[in-house]
Write a protein that binds this DNA or RNA. Structure first.
Lengths: 226, 226
DNA sequence: TGAGTGAATATTGTTGAACAATCTGTGAAT
DNA sequence: ATTCACAGATTGTTCAACAATATTCACTCA
């Protein structure tokens, strides 16, 4: 049950290039390819059994998703988000997410889905499973953005959340970052159910501010440079 | 700038693929390549003087920007936004733009820049220059999104505005769509200057609703199918 | 010893040709 | 007229090569 970004999925050898792109995406998301590491065209094309040309095309796709950075004549590297990138991530989230809860009109089905996500998050917290909690948290924020009904905004949120995962992978020891926020997520849903959209938006903004500060604190302490 | 079709022996080694991508982008934006038209790999690679392989890579980039759609084994076509795409465009704008004015803290410089844009729009309207008005309108909404300080959101807005231009190109006779909205833009800036952010956000949302309705009306009347 | 220099090497960027897979359109047979 | 098959055209992918740029490393000279 991966919630990785799915584009044109399934269909095995439909397009080799899309297949390769998804393989690389999965490996990066799984932390198998650590941020900053170089992706050599020759070795990768050999190990994946594809031409250097199609691999290159897959690189173009991944670069468009900004989970890989391309330096001319130097090669492509797994994106290594730093302090500035984290700030940018939260600039986006602080704009989109509160707007979604402020002006969104949640259907009962959407509210129930969010409640289900909250339950899963609580179960993961009680079980002490950090990856499960990370997944649930990501699902929650995707559900929030889905309130806008916009596919483009959902894609942007996907991109941003993928970058978030890279940030966590870049930190040597990932703390239980999400523990504090499970209940705040639940509070937002409760306010939405009561129709207190303005309150929910304000709380969500404060919540995001706190999360950014905490994350930046960890990041500064762990890896000041690079 | 140059619209020369021949790249005989000039302009090499400046990242051919990016160059080709920008050339195609410019031609599409200029309406030289109309929405729905097919981009043949063979003829384009010949006329542009590049390999079919690098052209293909440029296609991957443009597809990532969704100004071109790729149909497997059929080819790539200039995106032809329809009714559903217009609705999606306004879902995005109705989320991002009001959020930017509601939670943004405009600097005096930003306000002055917006005033300058308004002046340009008024001059264009008085001169009856539709393209100038379109440019000014686009600049205004980019300035609005810039209030968030986010580069990613600005890029998304760019993408959306590029799609808007395709919509206009798809309409046989583009009416003076922007005429009505120059003063409403000015009103938003005025409210921002007075610190009435909530009012500005509400007005902007109503404004976007009206624009969407008008555009959809034109679109239904002009080209009902594909 | 250490810093600067320059050739040797490796990697990326681009090309052209080739072949497989798929789609399109035409014509023949029923 | 409908269906089927076959040839033609276009896209998807691979391979081998070369040009351009980066990196490495040995070497000279203070």
């Amino acid at each position: 049950m991966n919630t990785a970004t799915d584009t044109t999925t399934a269909a095995e050898h439909a397009h080799t290039t899309a297949w390769i792109a998804s393989v690389l995406r999965a490996r990066i998301a799984a932390g198998q390819l650590t941020p900053g590491s170089k992706l050599s065209e020759q070795s990768l094309s050999e190990s994946l059994g594809v031409s250097r040309n199609t691999l290159r095309q897959a690189f173009a796709t991944l670069a468009g998703e900004s989970i890989v950075t391309r330096i001319p004549n130097r090669g492509v590297f797994v994106a290594a988000p730093g302090v500035e990138e984290v700030r940018e991530i939260y600039r986006v989230r602080r704009t989109i997410e509160p707007a979604a809860v402020l002006w969104g009109r949640p259907t009962p089905a959407q509210l129930d889905a969010m409640d289900a996500i909250i339950r899963k998050a609580r179960a993961a917290r009680d079980a002490g499973s950090v990856p499960e909690m990370a997944n649930a948290n990501q699902a929650f924020h995707e559900a929030v953005v889905s309130l806008t009904g916009s596919e483009l905004l959902r894609e942007l949120m996907d991109k941003v959340l993928a970058e978030m995962r890279l940030v966590f992978h870049a930190m040597s020891a990932a703390p239980d970052f999400h523990t504090h926020y499970v209940d705040r997520n639940a509070a937002v849903v409760e306010q939405l159910r009561r129709g207190e959209n303005e309150r929910a938006a304000a709380d969500l903004r404060a919540y995001l501010d706190a999360a950014e500060s905490e994350l930046l604190g960890h990041l500064e302490g762990e890896a000041p440079n690079r």
